[in-house]
Design a protein around this nucleic acid. Structure first.
Length: 722
DNA sequence: GTTCTAGAAC
DNA sequence: GTTCTAGAAC
């Protein structure tokens, strides 16, 4: 195609305008080629992947060859991926020069853990760059040492940082969704602030913005929504930032305002749309209930959201809230798409309410369909794990999986499904104009919704509050309420009716039900101790608001104790997110304290603190276990390997991983059937009795990896040369 | 998580 | 014959 002529046609002008260069930045094994492949497989845009490893007739070529090919592809109006490491500024500079006012210059940084890149590089066969085997580790390490993360000032209009697999996935989604004419907002997205003193869970998701294709009009969300001074402030800041561009482009703006860290519930008006509930009555109830809970909850915000800018219910509520003098910093009304509050409106809401249907299914339209669609299929799965259906007036809290786009993009950690009364004869549970009953149910629904939100706020207390420091004062066996009180579902069946806290019982039942990963009755004992430690006075060694310490009932070593987390919903490590980091630190500190106590009593002991990748017993628990494994209860392969394979995750590593990536990498249960190896000298043994007799005698030093980073604890003066 | 036990491995 | 594992039941 000849595009050399200056007088290009209008069509070509358009085409050229939307071309872009995406420079991948990442070590070997970071997934650059996969990234390109996956985007190119589904994209409707024409992409050319320039790969230095293959550009020389299938073999490695030169940088100049890459530049020439890239320039040629751009001339053709094609978009280009530069698939080479590009780890330092100098390497990138020549490619950045390919950009011009018609060509967007982007960088996508695959900044994944070195460990992961190395293991991928080592494993891969037939890799185009032929970087395989043991050499890979050295190469990757060397390259990462001179890594220089790209900056907008190098000439990029957009940089996307990916620091976890889920970051990579959302970047792939973003680029895949780009049609031939679409552009992406400018700015730097996804880079975590390395200097942040307190790592807040919400930070993870802030700076990712989807392709604007489906974005709601920013004008609407910013202009019409504002009812409070604070909101006015933040929106005017927002508008300044976006001047000159249609899309939001917050360039690595990490807000330090405490306002952004206030737990916030976004909720749609319940029952007023399809369920045809009277707007006057509904607005009275909303204001009444908000007033009640604003007072109750203290540090939390409520946002009533409606999509249409002329929303009658919103203006009614606004007027009535004004009359009642509701603190405008705690309650606001907002016009916009409830599934895009952050990306579309700069409003951070960690909890979103869904006007659900009784089946808790995505079907129908309105808010329900929109939320299920925006959250992706994982919401449906997570919902079904909690409840199968919902009665009018009830709510169910569903933690949103971190893979959900609503989590990644909008920062939503929980969805609360709520079902209100129905005044529409064509819908189930029609109340036939019975507004006495209707108002009752609507009040109940808002109470249930706000109680659900309150329970989340409470469970994330450590996240929203300043860390309170070490657990100095240990309470000895005094009754302490569980973080989220709930009925004892195991012993008292007739309590199942009449939800005392308004939250539908279905969510409790399902926790324990027949879902894929259900906990058997035998797996509940730790959960029960964490819930009611005062009922287990004989077993409990320490209680605080956050933890309970017990001896393992079947210790697998001379000393083996468990630090239980007293948080509802944290059944195992898989449930742990960044907002629980402080809890992990507390558990670790408590574990250390006990290990030190025992070390002072017996200097031959060595301790290790860690978690099982997939525990058998419900309720997050930290094992504090001495490394003698001298116990009659250690009987089989599973016992041994659960403490002496990668299945056992050291507490120090878990905390680091949660801090960096927001979740821990868990090992599959398969590795529990691995061969039996001594944890010191790594010798293999045919069966448990032979292994046990070996470890009774083996005094070889521990493997180097265990001697690092404080994974093993020795008595002071006992050195680390064990 | 443990206990029990059939049957494989020795 | 004895030892040991692994799967089912709880």
């Amino acid at each position: 195609m000849d595009v050399d002529g200056k007088s290009s046609s209008k069509g070509e002008e358009e085409k050229k305008k939307s071309a872009m260069v995406v420079i991948l930045v990442g070590a070997p094994g970071s997934g650059k080629s996969t990234f390109c492949d996956r985007v190119m497989r589904v994209s409707t845009r024409t992409w050319v992947r320039i790969c230095q490893d293959t550009i020389g007739n299938g073999k490695a070529g030169t940088k100049t060859q890459c530049l020439t090919s890239a320039a040629a592809a751009l001339k053709d109006g094609k978009s280009v991926f530069i698939d080479r490491c590009n780890l330092d500024r100098e390497q990138r500079a020549d490619f950045v020069k390919l950009g011009n006012p018609q060509v967007d210059m982007h960088a996508v940084v695959l900044d994944l853990p070195a460990k992961l890149c190395i293991s991928r590089s080592v494993k891969r066969e037939g890799h185009e760059g032929n970087l395989q085997g043991g050499r890979a580790a050295a190469v990757v390490n060397r390259m990462l040492q001179k890594k220089e993360l790209p900056k907008l000032s190098e000439g990029f209009s957009r940089i996307t940082f990916c620091q976890s697999e889920s970051d990579v996935q959302s970047a792939i989604d973003t680029y895949s969704a780009l049609g031939p004419q679409n552009t992406l907002p400018s700015g730097s997205f996804g880079q975590k602030n390395p200097d942040a003193k307190v790592q807040l869970g919400i930070m993870k998701f802030l700076k990712k913005v989807d392709s604007p294709v489906n974005a709601v009009s920013k004008g609407d969300s910013l202009k019409d929504s504002v009812t409070t001074d604070k909101e006015n402030d933040s929106s005017s800041i927002g508008r300044e930032e976006v001047k000159g561009g249609e899309d939001l482009a917050f360039c690595s703006l990490e807000s330090t305002s405490s306002f952004d860290n206030v737990p916030t519930l976004a909720f749609p008006p319940i029952s007023t749309a399809d369920f045809q509930f009277d707007l006057e009555k509904a607005s009275d109830i909303i204001v009444e209930k908000v007033l009640e809970f604003v007072t109750k909850l203290g540090n939390a915000r409520f946002v009533l959201v409606d999509l249409s800018s002329g929303s009658k219910i919103l203006s009614l509520v606004r007027a009535k809230a004004g009359e009642k003098n509701i603190d405008s910093g705690k309650f606001l009304t907002f016009v916009g798409d409830i599934t895009r509050l952050y990306s579309g409106g700069r409003l951070r809401c960690n909890v979103v309410a869904n006007a659900a249907n009784w089946r808790l299914k995505p079907e129908g339209g309105g808010v329900n369909a929109a939320i299920f669609s925006a959250a992706g299929p994982s919401l449906e799965t997570a919902t079904m794990e909690r409840a199968g259906s919902l009665a009018p007036g009830k709510a169910v809290v569903v933690p949103l999986p971190s893979t959900s786009p609503l989590f990644c993009r909008e920062g939503v950690t929980h969805v609360i499904h709520v079902l209100g009364p129905n005044m529409n004869p064509k819908r189930p549970n029609f109340l036939n104009k019975d507004y006495k009953k209707g108002c009752e149910v609507l009040r109940e629904a808002y109470s249930a919704l706000f109680e659900g939100f309150a329970s989340i706020v409470k469970s994330q207390k450590t996240f929203y509050e300043e860390p309170t420091g070490k657990l100095g004062s240990v309470q000895l066996v005094s009754p302490v309420d569980f973080k989220i009180p709930r009925k004892n579902q195991f012993s008292n069946a007739d309590q199942k009716t009449g939800a005392t806290n308004g939250i539908d019982n279905a969510q409790n039942e399902k926790n324990n039900g027949s879902m894929s990963k259900a906990w058997g009755a035998w797996a509940q004992s730790l959960y029960r101790i964490a819930t009611n430690p005062e009922k287990h006075k004989n077993d409990v060694m320490e209680i605080s608001d956050d933890i309970v310490v017990v001896n393992d009932l079947y210790p697998k070593a001379k000393r083996h104790l468990l630090v239980l987390a007293r948080y509802e919903g944290l059944d195992r490590l898989a449930d742990v997110r960044k907002e629980n980091l402080q809890l992990l630190r507390t558990m670790h500190d408590v574990g250390l304290k006990w290990a030190e106590k025992y070390l002072s009593e017996d200097k031959t002991l060595i301790f290790r603190l860690g978690y099982h990748s997939a525990p058998s017993m419900r309720q997050l628990h930290l094992h504090v276990i001495s490394q003698d494994f001298d116990s009659k209860h250690l009987k089989n392969k599973k016992h041994w390997n659960s403490f002496n394979s990668a299945f056992f995750l050291d507490s120090v590593d878990v905390m680091e991983e949660i801090d960096k990536f927001g979740q821990a990498t868990l090992k599959d249960e398969d590795i529990l059937s691995m061969e039996l190896r001594c944890h010191r000298c790594r010798s293999a043994h045919p069966n448990i009795p032979r292994l046990k007799s070996h470890i009774g005698n083996c005094s070889a030093p521990f493997p180097a990896s265990l001697l690092q980073n404080g994974r093993l604890l020795f008595a002071t003066g006992n050195g680390t040369n064990q």
